[in-house]
Design a protein around this nucleic acid. Sequence first.
DNA 1: ATATAATTTTGTACTGTTTACATTTTATAT
DNA 2: ATATAAAATGTAAACAGTACAAAATTATAT
Lengths: 135, 135
Amino acid sequence: MSNIVERLRNSNIKPSYARIKIMEYLMEHPVHPTVEEIYQNLVREIPTLSKTTVYNTLDLFIRHNLARVITIEENETRYDADTTNHGHFKCETCGALYDFTVDEDNLATRGLGDFVVTEKHVYFKGICKKCLYNQ
Amino acid sequence: MSNIVERLRNSNIKPSYARIKIMEYLMEHPVHPTVEEIYQNLVREIPTLSKTTVYNTLDLFIRHNLARVITIEENETRYDADTTNHGHFKCETCGALYDFTVDEDNLATRGLGDFVVTEKHVYFKGICKKCLYNQ
DNA sequence: ATATAATTTTGTACTGTTTACATTTTATAT
DNA sequence: ATATAAAATGTAAACAGTACAAAATTATAT
């Protein structure tokens, strides 16, 4: 809890209750939740919470690099409080999302000569272990 | 034109006029157009075209691996007829999308032991050459 | 402590993309 | 020519996300 307050303060974000709770939820549920998931779970604890606040707060986090958007899903945007380099795997059978380690720094590319790269994203799709064996 | 008919036939897709034209548009405009762009441009030539047909046809292409979805944009889905491995770069200043060559096969990963990977996607964000120099 | 200002949160209405589905049109085969 | 299957169309609806103004909360100054 207090480390979350620290995290927010370090980014010059006033640690309001909603902001703390949303960041806490993101960090404790690293399954890349959607706005809907975050809202439905937190509204139990914060009955006055509005979905707009969740959107606003997540946008705030992203502008301050405390969270990232994951665009692996076509319809719904997902959020991730882990801003270090890592890849995402989506199982097309069960829909689950997994993190994996990827060496993005040594990724060989051609055709980006003078471009400034600020974000690198890697995502795979396929079938996860569970779906391969458990049925 | 006839090579497009071939492409469709090879995937057991009946080459109707709309399908040929949509595939042709995708191949001649490798800027990863949206449904809206494809529709607005083709409806001039095919006045009876409906947006639903564009959606249906693109879904059909994707199911037959003749096109890919690019999920680099948050709001609108983009489509790409080039299904070979390559990365996408989005300029956050001008919004343009660029292709680049990426060695996806030799991408070092950890944590995907027994997973079957069917698709690998790499996309970067940053500032393109034009935006860096031309202003 | 109180008033004032600034910030945060909320709710409603709206926008725009995508889907569902029934109808119409077009192609294919008998 | 007629029946059957496939493709295309149009409308309505679903749904995520945004705009914005009002309300509530928090901070600041007197």
